[in-house]
Design a protein around this nucleic acid. Structure first.
Length: 456
RNA sequence: GGCCCCGUGGCAGAGUGGUUAUGCAGAGGACUGCAAAUCCUUGUACAUCGGUUCGAUUCCGGUCGGGGCCUCCA
């Protein structure tokens, strides 16, 4: 069965045909490192982590590139504000980012290039664009000449005239055309800059992704991903730069864009101030809960972030882990392929919510079946399907008993005392112990194999 | 103003031209000393108005409502 993905270029669901089936190449826009990542920043990371896992399952070799932007005017401003060096700020923020994304179960990309390590490639690209007549130097800047590209605007479906009509900012005097955008700009002495044919300066926002994808994936590659808000201008301009520099028909054949995380139906964003950092959420919730919440809506649909949503995600994981816990003695095949129904869901444009429903169905089968072979198959389906989604890989006991400041030895002692009371049919005392534990956030379950506990 | 997207049962959230999504919550039952966990049963859902059709929640058009991009933004 074929993988189908919705291609923003055509706004249609298309069968994915890699340029080279023996090596699939993917680029996703990564963070600008000047502050903690918020939950909205984490969504594309989790979504494209699932895509990468799926592609690795389908193809022998995948190169997944996700950059780090470590040169940017926001970085300069923040470093000055903090009274620290730019290097300190970007290194610290990148390390925090790695920790947070790992907590969300996102595997590292195969290559994580940094913008500042690709200045030479950016300059080379800009020189090509000038040579091709697609860019010009003016007043210390280098600008991309939008009218030089006939089909500029194809991705975002807007033409030059509309852009100018809708422009909400003043047009810089050095632009030949109001739609032109900056490739290179001059740096004052007190901000980062690199020597270039146009004097000491720094790159514009878009050129880095063209340079890094070129370096690590080639002139044309398979999939380019990112958030919806990057379609214009960022991805549109990346396409313009790369295609005009290389004279190619496409920068990437498939463009995938994830929907926003919202808060009470508004986009979560720094400018609205309605954001919650990943770090803040992780203080109260397991990373896997946050991951499941981020995966609970289809990747292109908006996803509302709320406490109720986190509770729901936790309840779902509790159910799935409970099924695994109750089947602790059931053997499951390791390294088994995911079940066909779950694969079919993922192959259909990454229908993760449907894949999660398949996980629930497997949990139901596992709970209900008495036949050992059937139970084993259901447990395998849960584990293997979970692996493809980056879920359900923890030990169920750890899931239910981990976290919090509970003392397992003390709990076991009380459980033993309660068992004695129950044996003596002193149910008042047994219930008293159970209620006392419950008040401390420990819930008991009496099963055929004895009493187990979990945090409430 | 231009360009996009969305509107499913109490909630979250898939999907489909005619037949059960799934999970949570609620109700009833089984099991249990009582619970918990689990299992069983249980819900006249598809914004609205037209059109196409034998038949539309699903296709087309209008209306209403919500959101996003056009400036940094995942």
């Amino acid at each position: 069965m074929d993988l189908k993905i919705t291609n923003t270029l055509t706004r249609e669901k298309e069968v994915f045909r890699p340029i080279d089936p023996s090596h699939v190449r993917v680029y996703v826009c990564g963070p600008t490192v000047y502050d903690f990542a918020h939950v909205g920043n984490a969504r594309p990371v989790v979504v494209f982590d699932v895509l990468a896992r799926l592609l690795r399952h389908l193809y022998p070799r995948v190169t997944y590139v996700r950059n780090i932007t470590d040169v940017d005017d926001k970085i300069n401003a923040r470093a000055r504000e903090n009274g620290e060096t730019i290097a300190d700020l970007t290194e610290r923020t990148a390390a925090q980012y790695h920790q947070d994304m790992a907590a969300l179960g996102a595997l590292p990309p195969d290559v994580e290039p940094r913008a500042t390590h690709h200045i030479a490639q950016m300059i080379a690209l800009i020189e090509r664009l000038i040579a091709n007549g697609h860019a010009y130097a003016a007043d210390g800047h280098v600008l991309f000449a939008v009218p030089s590209m006939p089909d500029y605007g194809r991705l975002s479906r807007r033409d030059r005239d509309e852009l100018i009509a809708g422009a909400r900012v003043d047009v810089a005097p050095y632009k030949r055309d109001p739609a032109d955008f900056v490739l290179w700009k001059p740096s004052a002495d007190d901000i980062p800059g690199w020597d270039s044919p146009w004097g000491r300066g720094r790159p514009g926002w878009h050129i880095e992704c063209s340079a890094m994808s070129w370096e690590h994936l080639g002139e044309t590659f398979d999939i380019h991903g990112g958030g919806l808000d990057l379609i214009f201008p960022h991805h549109e301009n990346e396409i313009a730069q790369s295609r005009c520099a290389f004279g190619t028909h496409a920068m990437a054949n498939y463009w995938m864009h994830n929907g926003f995380v919202t808060v009470e139906d508004d986009k979560m964003s720094k400018s609205l101030g309605n954001f919650v950092t990943v770090r803040e959420v992780l203080a109260d919730w397991p990373g896997e809960v946050v991951r499941l919440l981020l995966l609970s809506a289809h990747y292109r649909a908006p996803l509302d972030f709320s406490d109720a949503g986190l509770k729901e995600a936790r309840a779902q994981l509790d159910r799935l882990y409970q099924a695994l816990r109750n089947a602790g003695d059931v053997p499951a095949a390791t390294a088994a392929p995911p079940s066909g129904d779950l694969m079919a869901a993922l192959l259909d444009d990454l229908n993760v919510p449907l894949a999660i429903a398949r996980l629930h169905e497997a949990a139901g089968r596992l709970n209900r079946a008495s036949d050992p072979a059937e139970r084993s198959a259901a447990k395998t389906a849960l584990r293997a399907g979970g692996a493809l989604l980056g879920l359900l890989q923890a030990d169920p006991e750890a899931w239910f008993q981990g976290g919090g400041d509970l003392d397992p030895a003390e709990i076991e002692r009380l459980i033993a005392a309660r068992a004695d009371a129950r044996k003596a049919r002193n149910f008042a005392e047994a219930d008293r112990i159970r209620d006392a534990l419950k008040a401390k956030g420990v819930e008991l379950e009496d099963g055929p194999q004895g009493t187990t506990w979990k945090r409430g």
